[in-house]
């Protein structure tokens, strides 16, 4: 495990195969919380934290399940770990910053059903990543998610002042912008080929 390969994993997870724009994971918060820049970046932080914890736990659980030969429990145990981590983060944010808690609203408990996190745990298991690789993978995925969310929020803040036909307003406009963003992220495609 050289330093290069870890770097490659990070770039791959955050830019080349961005979780939101290339794998379509975590679309719900991407469309829902990307209205304001500030909320978006904090949401990104919360998701990144849950990702890292969940990825570490998933690594341990996978090793355990292989040891006791019960791979069919994988999905159930992953989701339980994620749900409890989210609960923890929710309590922490509620205590530390009630304002942020209100701003994130329903999307905070919904991190549990954020496919990006479960997807991350499943992908790292499929790819057979070790402990450090999993950690870097989670970090990259979290960074990629935050990046996509913040970029989207910036674009949408600008679009609030644009004259848009009524029929396109709302989700349609967001999806179109997301499509263009996804196209531009394809420019990274050659970056990690090695």
């Amino acid at each position: 495990m050289t330093e290069e390969s870890l770097w490659y994993i990070f770039i791959n997870a955050s830019l080349v195969n961005n979780f939101v724009l290339a794998y379509f994971l975590g679309i719900c918060p991407f469309l829902g919380v990307s209205g304001k820049m500030e909320t978006a970046s904090k949401m990104g932080g919360a998701v990144t934290f849950v990702m890292i914890v969940a990825s570490m736990c998933a690594y341990g659980i996978h090793a355990l399940l292989v040891a006791v030969n019960a791979p069919f429990l994988q999905l159930i145990s992953y989701i339980v770990v994620i749900a409890s981590t989210v609960q923890l983060v929710e309590m922490f944010i509620k205590k530390m910053s009630p304002a942020l808690f209100r701003a994130l609203g329903i999307f905070l408990p919904l991190i549990t059903t954020n496919c990006a996190i479960l997807g991350l745990a499943l992908f790292q298991t499929n790819k057979g990543y070790g402990f450090f690789e999993s950690f870097v993978y989670a970090l990259g995925a979290g960074a990629g998610f935050t990046l996509a969310l913040v970029l989207m929020a910036g674009l949408r803040e600008k679009l609030d002042f644009a004259e848009v036909p009524g029929i396109v307003k709302g989700t349609v406009l967001t999806l179109l912008v997301a499509g263009i963003l996804s196209l531009s992220f394809m420019g990274f495609a050659g970056l990690g080929s090695q």
Binding site: A22, L176, G179, S182
Partner: peptide, 13 residues
């Protein structure tokens, strides 16, 4: 490509 998914869904909506 991924972008096509966004565009197609936007069109249907």
């Amino acid at each position: 490509l991924p972008a096509g998914g966004f565009f197609t869904l936007a069109m249907w909506l």
